[in-house]
Design a protein around this nucleic acid. Structure first.
Lengths: 235, 235
DNA sequence: CCAGCGACTGAACAGGTGTTTAGTGTTTGA
DNA sequence: TCAAACACTAAACACCTGTTCAGTCGCTGG
């Protein structure tokens, strides 16, 4: 849920205007002047409060990240998730700016985008582990990689929302294009694939497994196998 | 495969430099001057050849779109697809600029991005139909929506490549971040989900179906059901 | 031979950019 | 009560942007 208190500090008003504008136009195309005029202040005041345009961006990053972190907790509980989704379906516009901003952050490869993606992957991994223990989710060989695949699939709707809506003829709502009608059309097909699979049998999987093993044996040890971020990589 | 003829027209050199720069920096941040210096010419010549920066972008759009259209044909044949993938794995750098450019076009919601996405969805639909007839792919209720889901999932790797590589500790190669090691790590988990599903049974699917039917009956007829682009939407 | 044409450049232009500066009032705290 | 701190602005700054202009070079057809 979301409190709609509109008595914000000027600083906060500028920041929110920037979040909306950065999400809609991108960081490069949104100007300090446009942010200022949207917030109803002078350009100089924007700099006065945030030091520079980059500083404003950092403040936006931190704000959006803090918001999503609060909502991200306890997502392992399916009830909470459902509540969040229903809340979104009832008040799509209130989240629109932040969603669009996150999409931009993920595209621009900013630190905030990195942190957000890491968080989603870690949450997905938690959900998978909980689901395996509850017996609702299959016990995968490489849970981390599976979490990455699932997280990536989920975020594709965020990244490509406008395209999905356009192709399916659903109304393109908000700066991200994800409206209730789009969710209505995609939920069952997506869950169907996740439940019954896409292929009829394991032919493709087996072929890929063999191909990879073959390649593995020919290039043995040539890859320096960086362990990387394979758990808890949040900044 | 790809011919590596480096005796290009100046016009083509400028265009290729622009494709690389637009993909790496984005259209707004890449300047005419930077394109010119990368191509080794004066800024004025860029305008002389393409009329304006927007004209240059249009030329890049058309060029990349033409390239991908050639490669997109006959993807229904699994052999062709495999050849393309292997070709990519052997020469990842040659495609890097175009891949990054397409990623940008999909993000910026340009006409080229729209056309590209529509093409991918239509090809996916063709593949599904062929697979259903061949018995390798399940016969889905809503083939179009399923194609959208699958296409969107596939393109998520393109959109989020850098994040995927970072989280999995795979080397971030090229401006898009998709390297052979990333493919190696994700192929089996992805195919596993597509083959055996993600959930152990149809509990989630059934719950969603019921929830949607319930919602359907309460909001009956309130939605203006635009048929939209539900087939062959390429420009 | 040379007029004409296209590729190409250096310099300039107008407008937009982020940022600074000097200066408003207005609040606050001793 | 007065000075310091604050929120805020108009105007200017230096720089960067896309684009134009005048002009040079080299080639090519008559």
């Amino acid at each position: 849920m979301r409190s709609v208190a509109e008595d914000l500090t000027t600083r906060a008003r500028i920041r929110d205007a920037a979040i909306g504008l950065f999400g809609r136009e991108g960081f490069a195309r949104a100007t300090v002047r446009s942010v200022a005029s949207l917030a109803g202040v002078s350009p100089a005041l924007v700099i006065h409060h945030f030091g520079s345009k980059a500083g404003l961006r950092t403040a936006c990053d931190e704000h959006v990240l803090a918001l999503t972190a609060t909502q991200g907790r306890e997502k392992t509980d399916p009830g909470t998730t459902r509540m969040l989704i229903q809340d979104y379906l009832n008040h799509p516009d209130e989240y629109a700016d932040e969603i669009a901003y996150i999409r931009r952050a993920l595209s621009d490869e900013s630190d905030a985008g990195n942190a957000f993606f890491d968080g989603v992957v870690n949450q997905t991994e938690d959900i998978i582990n909980a689901g395996i223990q509850a017996g609702t989710i299959r016990a995968f060989a490489d849970i981390r990689a599976t979490a990455v695949v699932i997280a990536s699939n989920s975020l594709s709707m965020l990244m490509l929302g406008r395209h999905l809506s356009r192709v399916l003829g659903a109304p393109v709502s908000g700066p991200h294009g994800i409206g209730p009608e789009l969710l209505r059309q995609l939920t069952l097909p997506a869950l169907d694939v996740y439940t019954n699979g896409f292929y009829t049998d394991s032919r493709f999987l087996d072929a890929a497994r063999e191909a990879l093993q073959q390649q593995e044996s020919t290039t043995e040890g040539s890859m320096p196998r960086d362990p990387g971020n394979r758990r808890r990589g949040v900044a």
